Computed example of a mutant assay.
Amino acid sequence: MAATSEHPAETPECPAAQEGGLLPTELRNWMVLLAATGAIEQRLGPVLKETLGISHDEFLVLCLLADRPDGGLRMTRIAELLGRPKTRLTYQIACLAHAGLVTRRPVCGDKRGVEVALTGKGRRLFTESSPALADVVVSGLTEIGPEERETLCGMLPEEADGEKR
């Protein structure tokens, strides 16, 4: 696993978090969220390369598939969920398939549709590496300062899905 000394000691302050600027609170909060997730991605990237030999975007595909024990996902749905262009996703899936981590198969009744699923090797590798990867995420979250933490917690609306939060 990559040494934590290679990573910044704390999450960099988001430049948009300055009061009195032009951004409304919601956009300022969004920038804090992006800064926090970006800091975690920077920590996670080298660990993913070292432990799984994959990129962060490829890891996101594996996460979506790992959360689907009943089967795979259509490539179009993966692209939607990740907000990635289908052409970029095709390349990432090809890399994962070449590594033996996923399979591609046609969707029954749709000659253009392709479903992607984890292989046995992909499941084993993901299961073995998940605790260490989760630790990297948790360590990144612990670096978030109190102001950023308050901002992130305050992003949820008071009422969502008809329930008080």
Rank of each mutant, 00 (worst) to 15 (best):
A79D: 02
T90A: 15
C153G: 11
P157G: 13
L101K: 02
K111M: 12
T103D: 10
K49F: 05
V47E: 11
C153H: 12
L44A: 01
A117T: 08
D135W: 06
E115T: 12
G145T: 02
L89N: 00
S5C: 09
E6D: 12
L34F: 05
G162N: 02
E58C: 03
K86R: 15
R149N: 08
T127D: 10
P46Q: 01
G53S: 02
L48A: 01
T51K: 15
A35M: 09
A66R: 08
I78S: 00
P24Y: 03
L73W: 06
E159F: 09
G120N: 10
V116I: 09
R77N: 06
Q42A: 11
A35K: 06
P8M: 09
E159D: 06
A17F: 08
G38P: 00
A97L: 02
G38L: 04
K121M: 12
D70E: 15
T11M: 15
R28A: 07
E159R: 12
C153F: 11
L133V: 06
A132M: 10
F126T: 04
G38H: 08
R149I: 04
G100V: 00
P85M: 10
G109T: 01
C95E: 15
L133N: 02
R123C: 05
D135M: 12
V138R: 14
I54Q: 04
R149G: 07
T25G: 05
E41T: 10
V114Q: 05
L101E: 04
E159M: 13
G113P: 05
G122M: 04
V32E: 09
L73T: 03
A35V: 00
E80Q: 10
H7V: 10
E19F: 06
A39P: 01
L27Y: 09
E80G: 05
A117V: 03
H56W: 10
L96R: 00
A117H: 03
M75H: 04
K111S: 12
K49G: 09
G140T: 00
L34V: 10
V137G: 03
N29C: 06
G120H: 09
S129Y: 02
G45H: 07
F126M: 13
E158N: 11
G122V: 01
E147D: 13
P69H: 07
R28I: 01
E19V: 05
T25I: 07
H56D: 05
D135S: 13
S139E: 15
T90M: 11
L133I: 12
C153V: 13
E143Y: 05
R165Y: 06
V136G: 01
R124D: 09
N29P: 00
C14M: 08
G53M: 02
E26V: 11
V136L: 01
A79S: 08
F59C: 04
W30K: 13
L96G: 02
S130I: 12
V102N: 03
L62A: 02
Q92F: 08
A134Q: 14
H98K: 15
M1D: 08
P85A: 13
P69N: 04
V47L: 04
R105V: 07
P106H: 03
A35H: 07
L65E: 03
